[in-house]
C-alpha cells in the first residue's frame, strides 16, 4: 500500500531533532509487533535511538551486549536479515543471542541495515510474536523506510555534531563541495542529495571540515567506492591516531580482526545469494559492541 509507505516516510521526515518517534511510523506501515531503530558501530556509536516497546528495546540490548544477532549481520552484509522462525528454524547461527532469546516471546525477527552509500551505521529491528514470513511487499517497504530513516539519522547526527560546513556566506568554498558532490555522484551512482550527505558523513567520521574532504575528492586523494564497504582513501598519510576517521574505517570487516568467528549458515533462505560484500576471507565477523 503505497500511501501507508508515504505516510510513514512523511512522519519520519517530520521528526524534528529528536529521534523519538522513529519506530512508530514503521509499525504503522509494516505488520509487525514491535520495532526499534539503533545506531551500531563507531561512526555514530552503538545505541538504541527509539523502540516501540520494551521487548523491542530488549532485543537491541541483547544484540549489543552479546555482539551478535541480526542487526550486526544486517550492517555487515548491507542487506536485510530475515528470520521468520527465529527460535524454531533459525536461518543463521547466533548461539548466545538465540540462547538469550529463548526467554523472550519473539517468534520472528527482521533486521534492515541503516546505510547511505558506503556508510553503514545502524539497523532497524522488526519483531513479531508469531512466526511467519515477512511478505515480499512488506520487506520492500521496510527497506525503503530503512533508507528514509538512514538519511534522517545521519543528517541528524551531522547536524548535532555541527560539522564544519562552509558558512552560508562562504560561497566559494561551497563551489568545491558541489564539484566533489559530482565526483561522488559519478563514483557511486547516487543522487546529488545523497552524495552531499556522504561528503558530510565522511567529514563527520573524520572530524574534518567538509571543504577539506571535498578538496581531497576533487584532487583524487579520496575515492568513494561501494565495493570496499567503506570509503577508500588514496592518500598515503593515515589519519591521526584516535581520530574518528580511523575508527570508522576500522569498522570495515576486512580492516578489523574477527573477535569471534561464526560460521555463516546458508543465506539463501532470506533471498540473498552471495556474500560478496563480506571480507575476502569469507568469514563472518562478530563485532565488538564496545
Amino acid at each position: 500500500m503505497p500511501d501507508r509507505f508515504a505516510a510513514a516516510a512523511k512522519a519520519i521526515a517530520a521528526i524534528a531533532d529528536d529521534s523519538v518517534g522513529l519506530a512508530a511510523p514503521l509499525l504503522d506501515a509494516i505488520p509487525v509487533t514491535g520495532a526499534s531503530v539503533s545506531t551500531i558501530g563507531s561512526l555514530l556509536g552503538t545505541r538504541t535511538l527509539d523502540a516501540s516497546d520494551r521487548r523491542a528495546a530488549r532485543i537491541d540490548e541483547l544484540q549489543f551486549d552479546l555482539g551478535e544477532g541480526p542487526c550486526w549481520d544486517a550492517i555487515q552484509s548491507a542487506r536485510p536479515i530475515l528470520e521468520p522462525d527465529l527460535l524454531g528454524r533459525p536461518v543463521r547461527h547466533w548461539p548466545a543471542f538465540l540462547g538469550a532469546m529463548q526467554r523472550e516471546p519473539v517468534a520472528a525477527l527482521f533486521a534492515f541495515p541503516l546505510m547511505v552509500g558506503p556508510l553503514r551505521f545502524g539497523a532497524i529491528d522488526l519483531y513479531r510474536d508469531a512466526a511467519g514470513e515477512l511478505a515480499r511487499e512488506d520487506a520492500a517497504r521496510a527497506e525503503q523506510l530503512a533508507a528514509v530513516v538512514s538519511r534522517h539519522v545521519l543528517r541528524r547526527a551531522i547536524r548535532t555534531a555541527g560539522i564544519a560546513e562552509p558558512a552560508e556566506g562562504d560561497r566559494f568554498s561551497r563551489r568545491i563541495v558541489h564539484q566533489a558532490t559530482g565526483f561522488v555522484i559519478a563514483q557511486l551512482g547516487v543522487s546529488a542529495e545523497d552524495a552531499e550527505l556522504l561528503i558530510q558523513g565522511q567529514a563527520f567520521s573524520e572530524n574534518r571540515p567538509m571543504t577539506e574532504v571535498a578538496t581531497d575528492i576533487v584532487e583524487r586523494r579520496t575515492v568513494f567506492s561501494m565495493d570496499s564497504g567503506f570509503i577508500e582513501d588514496r592518500s598515503t598519510d593515515a589519519p591521526p591516531a584516535g581520530s574518528r576517521g580511523e575508527s570508522a574505517r576500522a569498522q570495515s570487516p576486512s580492516a578489523e580482526p574477527a573477535e569471534s568467528e561464526v560460521p555463516r549458515a546458508d543465506p539463501s533462505a532470506d533471498g540473498s545469494t552471495g556474500n560478496d560484500r563480506l571480507g575476502d576471507d569469507g568469514s563472518d565477523v562478530a563485532e565488538d559492541p564496545a
Binding site: H178, Q179, A180, G182, F183, V184, I185, A186, A192, A195
Partner: peptide
C-alpha cells in the same frame, strides 16, 4: 548544478 556536473565529468 553546473558545478556538480563538472564534478561528474571530471571523474
Amino acid at each position: 548544478v553546473i558545478e556538480q556536473a563538472k564534478g561528474v565529468l571530471a571523474h
